[in-house]
Design a protein around this nucleic acid. Structure first.
Lengths: 202, 202
DNA sequence: GTCTATAGCTTGATAGAC
DNA sequence: GTCTATCAAGCTATAGAC
């Protein structure tokens, strides 16, 4: 957006920087998730975002910084998605979790689905132990686990922390196996375990 | 090894090619597993193997070819390792599997442990659907699952295919979470699920 | 804040000698 | 079968104009 001032020397310095940053994050999400963080170049992200590399490096110090921002931006929407899936089913928590797995199975058969972005980024960055993105991924999964703890407590079940942890393990395993085999029966088998973990023990 | 023939022109053309190939695979294993397949360059592998890149490309057509060979070479040793872990415990199959998870927990706390090489390669190559290494990874996991089916059948339990699949899911999830959090309580929680999956149902 | 242009290096892969 | 030498392309990141 140009601001005419009677001179040519004054041009708006801000061309919606928030929007630019959001565009970059969106482009990074598309490519980092679709192709992997190491397989994606900064050139490719700049091109997809419709900016030059100079602008990219104005908004993000480095590629590692952008990888972190990519995961950070994914945190809340991902948790929200699972929450929507869980709330879509009415009934006991066991039934709701079964429904959550069922819906995961639906989206996970699409070709554009490429597993969990956090899990895959962690797999790629395993060789860089101190990478900041790893901490973000770890905290994201912790948050998911804590959300389950709350749900299990609200259901009046005992041993909520252990049960939540076990449901997370089963979900992670289902996602990993789905990515490898693209066979929805893995998600079904997993949903069955998860539901049984949420039954009141006698 | 030089063979003296009275001339300088005749030098052994074969300097243990099998050994060279094995050296390359070993170097590839160290680096691909330790740093990731995309983070590792052919230069780095050649240097670690003590050969030039020309020799590397004599033995392997391309990097993708070497990635496939790396996973192929890991198939049997990996299955063998789990078999050793399982057989190390005496008792019911449930107890043996619990022992297998326990031993996994031991090695998975070491810093050099970087999760499952197949799972991580699959995560990295998710953006290249037709990659030959993906098929090798998938078949490896299938082989592991089938080995479990046999064990469960031998134990006289029903629904062996489903139970085996569920144990695999739990194991994959435990490995993924261990890699992310480096917290052995995940393996413990997983081992508990796996063992309970192998109890005769009433 | 965004541009054009490029530095400086690494990458996967190859040529040709022996 | 292994070497030395090298290519063209791609990479992350930066310089300086406006």
């Amino acid at each position: 957006m140009y601001i005419f001032t009677g001179r040519y020397t004054f041009v708006a310095m801000t061309r919606k920087p928030r929007a630019t940053r959001a565009n970059i994050i969106q482009a990074a999400d598309d490519l980092f998730y679709g192709e992997g963080v190491r397989a994606t170049s900064m050139d490719a992200i700049a091109e997809r975002a419709g900016v030059t590399k100079r602008t990219l490096y104005y908004h993000f110090r480095s590629k590692d910084d952008l990888i972190s921002a990519y995961l950070q931006a994914r945190d809340e929407p991902t948790l929200g998605r699972y929450e929507v899936w869980l709330n879509a089913t009415k009934g006991t928590l066991a039934e709701q979790v079964a429904g959550m797995f069922h819906r995961l199975g639906r989206v996970a058969t699409a070709a554009k689905w490429k597993g969990c972005g956090f899990q895959r980024a962690a797999a790629e960055l395993a060789g860089s132990p101190g990478h900041p993105a790893l901490k973000i991924a770890s905290e994201h999964k912790k948050r998911f686990e804590l959300w389950l703890v709350e749900r299990i407590n609200a259901e009046g079940l005992d041993a909520a922390p252990l049960r939540a942890r076990q449901v997370v393990i089963v979900l992670e395993g289902a996602v990993a196996q789905m990515l490898l085999h693209r066979d929805p029966s893995y998600v079904r088998a997993a949903g069955q375990i998860a539901a049984s973990l949420l039954i009141k023990r006698g």
